[in-house]
């Protein structure tokens, strides 16, 4: 089954159009000049050339999700639970690291009590991955057991080649998806296979490897190291790193109510906000930025490991790329390993 198929741009568009018939398409698209992951109505809006600033986690864990609506009718309170997730979602253009990130979210939401909002979306989804032929300078997926062409967790892997794309059906679901445009595909010949291999090698070579294992081990006795104060001193405590992170999953549940009706919503939360740990008494166990910065790193690289045996970071580097004060996770890893 592990066969590569060549598709010309026309076939690629036909493929996405067909997917759009059966799935809700979630893909990178340009909105007012900025590329973001979003639900797209028109398959022509899909733009794979630039990695979106957002991660695709919102397809499965929306930033805002209505769980329940309530209203007062006379003496009675009327409750209407949220609709179960809609049609299945096809995520097109998801990067290998981001598919890896979903596998990190799975244990969180499928552990009892199962979160059906997440798991239903996830079970029915089709993931059409897009290999990273030119990784960003912030990327370090190869240090975390993945790679720019990693097919693990995907249903289909697309690689950009001269004249179009090559597609690999990774799963049976992926094979069936490609089947629809079967007559527009041709088997990749030796030359194309060689090109894919060459691009894979180039992408992997472009990435420096960090010693994450040593980093994790060093964290054990670095809780009081001055490095955290140094980093926190410049942190502005915004939510960029956590909101753009494909593996951060914290949320809050709030009631938004008027006089006679309202709704209960789940919204993303961020451990970088002081309110995140603020207790009703007024006490805050993580009162300063240094506590919050340290928590973010330790959650991903220690506590997630303890809980699930997995590292809670996939090396996409978005947190560093978009940090307005240049808190750079790659630099932190190298620095801690060096100390």
């Amino acid at each position: 089954m592990a066969e590569w198929w060549f598709m010309e741009p026309d076939a690629f568009h036909a493929f996405i159009r067909e997917l759009g018939e059966r799935f809700m398409l979630y893909a990178p698209a340009r909105r007012d000049g900025i590329v973001t992951f979003t639900f797209v109505e028109n398959h022509e809006d899909v733009e794979l050339s630039k990695r979106p600033f957002t991660s695709p986690k919102a397809a499965f864990l929306p930033q805002t999700e209505v769980l329940l609506k309530f209203s007062l009718r006379g003496e009675r309170v009327h409750l209407s639970p949220a609709q179960r997730p809609e049609s299945p979602i096809a995520v097109v253009g998801i990067r290998p690291c981001e598919a890896g990130a979903l596998k990190l979210l799975d244990p969180v939401f499928s552990s009892p009590p199962e979160d059906v909002h997440y798991t239903l979306r996830r079970e029915n989804a089709l993931l059409v991955g897009f290999a990273c032929t030119s990784p960003e300078r912030w990327c370090f997926c190869t240090s975390l057991g993945s790679s720019p062409f990693d097919e693990d967790g995907l249903d289909v892997l697309l690689v950009e080649v001269s004249g179009g794309y090559c597609a690999l059906a990774v799963t049976e679901r992926g094979r069936r998806a490609l089947e629809v445009v079967r007559d527009m595909l041709r088997k990749a010949d030796e030359a194309l296979l060689g090109e894919i291999e060459e691009r894979r090698r180039q992408a992997e070579r472009a990435m420096k490897t960090l010693d994450v294992e040593r980093f994790i081990a060093r964290l054990e006795d670095m809780g009081d190291d001055p490095i955290w104060e140094e980093i926190a001193a410049r942190c502005i405590g915004c939510g960029i790193c956590t909101y753009l992170c494909p593996t951060c999953y914290c949320f809050d549940i709030q009631d938004e109510a008027g006089l006679t009706s309202g709704r209960r919503v789940r919204v993303w939360d961020s451990c970088m906000y002081p309110e995140y740990t603020l207790e009703a008494s007024g006490h805050n166990p993580r009162p300063k930025r240094v506590h919050r910065v340290k928590n973010r790193i330790y959650h991903k690289f220690r506590w997630y490991v303890d809980l699930f045996g997995l590292v809670g970071c996939v090396g996409c580097g978005r947190c560093a790329e978009h940090c307005p004060v240049n808190v750079d996770i790659k630099e932190i890893i190298s620095e801690v390993v060096r100390r």
Binding site: D32, Q63, C238, G239, P324
Partner: peptide, 16 residues
Amino acid sequence: EDAFSRCIRCYACRNA
């Protein structure tokens, strides 16, 4: 409306 609908409410603007 377009501009504000892109906002992810990370509060970076306020914090910076």
